[in-house]
């Protein structure tokens, strides 16, 4: 009771004029929306209302990796089937992406495409035969100007401040507008129950491989999350880690590089400086944060 009341008073305090002097002074330094955002701890007023006086008292953990704008570079020339498959496997494993045989109901976070599909606009018959065979790893581009976030009617898919486009699977109503909006086909929908459970809650058939990451319910859209849960623990995305390990073993340049695009010293910036990189469908203006070196 006591704890709760204190919290309540805190919230109440924010909203009363008397306690507004200090925040008001702060407010002069930032625009009103930023100020409000800060007061609400990143929550909208309606969300705060839904929590009925509970104000988030969370913190970022100290070991978390942070950035202003996360980005990934895929060096396609360094990829091979094995690396691509390893990336796909580790990603799908740690995120409990179900393996569904029916291609219509398939769920994919990261997968290999042929050049002509990954970059349909840039394809011609006389292209380097080697390139035609290479597995283009594709995934959510975490667009800077993401059409999916624009169309989502509930903000279930949203762009984090660090540029990661995330899915809030608690909130998704399953309208699939984002799938129509995504120009990269990066989004998958749970057409069926991905991890069926019996009446008693036990899993029917296969169990999800990772007990640490939740599964999804039917009827929500999902996609690559740039391993937000790993970043929070100070780890780089699983695919990058797997690819880099394998490349090291094979003595290649890292096929996947991950880092802060706004930080001039970051690995991604260094790679982009030294290689010619393109992005998928740049003409659509979505400004992907995944770059390809071909």
């Amino acid at each position: 009771m006591g704890v709760n009341r204190r919290k309540f008073l805190k919230i109440a305090g924010i909203s009363t004029l008397g306690a507004a002097a200090v925040p008001a002074a702060n407010a002069l330094a930032m625009n009103p929306i930023e100020w409000l955002d800060k007061q609400l701890g990143g929550f909208t007023p309606s969300e705060i209302l839904l929590h009925m006086g509970h104000k988030p008292t969370g913190l970022k953990s100290r070991e978390a990796l942070t950035a202003k704008r996360w980005a990934m570079v895929v060096n396609v020339r360094q990829l091979d089937e094995e690396i691509a498959e390893a990336c796909r496997e580790i990603c799908h494993k740690i995120h409990n992406v179900p393996h569904i045989k029916n291609p219509k109901h398939e769920i994919k976070w990261i997968w290999a495409e042929h050049y002509e599909h990954a970059l349909p606009g840039q394809y011609h018959e006389h292209i380097d035969e080697n390139l035609k065979k290479l597995p283009f790893l594709v995934m959510c581009n975490h667009c800077f100007n993401a059409p999916c976030c624009r169309v989502c009617p509930t903000k279930a898919t949203f762009k984090r401040k660090d540029g990661i486009v995330l899915m809030d699977m608690h909130r998704c109503i399953g309208c699939r507008f984002c799938m129509a909006a995504c120009p990269f086909g990066a989004r998958s929908f749970n057409w069926i129950v991905p991890w069926p459970r019996a009446e008693d809650g036990k899993f029917e058939g296969k169990e999800p491989p990772s007990p640490e990451f939740p599964t999804r319910s039917k009827g929500v859209v999902e996609k690559c999350n740039f391993c937000a849960e790993r970043l929070a623990k100070g780890q780089i995305p699983a695919c990058v880690e797997a690819a880099q390990e394998l490349c090291k073993k094979k003595g290649r340049e890292p096929a996947l590089v991950f880092g802060d695009l706004e930080d001039p010293d970051s690995e991604v910036r260094q790679v982009l400086r030294s290689h010619y990189a393109i992005r998928r469908k740049p003409e659509l203006g979505s400004k992907p944060n995944v770059y390809y070196i071909v």
Binding site: G42, F43, P56, G58, K60, R160, D162, L166, A228
Partner: peptide, 23 residues
Amino acid sequence: TKHMQLLDLWRDSVVRVAQRSYV
């Protein structure tokens, strides 16, 4: 009495605000 609301808060905090540490 309030664990559900705490968990609800947690999930929003984790997913949407990227604040994962609870004090």
